[in-house]
């Protein structure tokens, strides 16, 4: 029963990958190879599409694989399955955290977590700058910066940091500018 297989597979993907995003891909690939729902070429296509479309990679992939193997119902089922573990885990966790959020140990723990997250965001920024503003040669060495991309990034940085422009408007404007200058 393909619906059941889709559901179980994507439930597993949602349950066993921590950190979201590309961390989920090896498990997704494993499930796809086990059931042959889509071809290897389709899998490569969906990775490129997932990167260029909004939303979590897990949802994009689940929707695509579900549709290709079992139509619209399959896509909805796979997507629900990948989100369901989150719902269960986060609701249980939220209950616990709300109960103890004023506890001194909880406050101490989060006073250490916040700077750790600040560091992770810094790392994410460096990673994204490296991969979007520089032409990367063969995936390893850094090439010359793409001046058009650098200009957009600097303009966006100034707009949100100093003029508090709405990030959504900035993204729309950058898409339009991209259409013109690239």
């Amino acid at each position: 029963m393909i619906y059941w297989e889709l559901f179980i597979s994507f439930f597993k993907v949602g349950l066993f990958t921590i950190g979201g995003g590309y961390a989920m891909l090896p498990l997704i690939q494993q499930e796809i190879e086990a059931y042959q729902w889509i071809t290897t070429q389709e899998f490569i296509d969906i990775l490129a599409i997932a990167e260029m479309t909004p939303g979590p990679v897990a949802v994009n992939t689940a929707t695509f694989v579900g549709y290709k193997s079992a139509g619209v119902l399959g896509s909805l089922l796979a997507t629900t399955a990948v989100a369901l573990p989150s719902l269960i885990i986060i609701l249980l966790l939220a209950r616990f955290l709300e109960k103890y959020q004023e506890h001194p140990i909880m406050k101490a723990v989060f006073s250490g977590i916040r700077p750790a997250v600040a560091g992770l965001i810094g790392a994410a920024a460096i990673f994204i700058i490296r991969n979007t503003l520089f032409v990367v040669n063969g995936g390893t060495s850094l090439g010359l910066p793409d001046l058009r991309a650098v200009l957009i990034a600097i303009a966006v940085f100034i707009a949100v940091r100093y003029y508090k422009v709405d990030p959504i408007k900035v993204i729309i404007a950058s898409a339009v500018v991209g259409l013109i200058i690239f």
């Binding site: 994204i128 979007t132 966006v156 500018v177």
Partner: peptide, 11 residues
């Protein structure tokens, strides 16, 4: 390409 550059500035 424009959106990717914007994300770099935003983050």
């Amino acid at each position: 390409s424009g959106i990717r550059a914007a994300i770099a500035g935003l983050i």
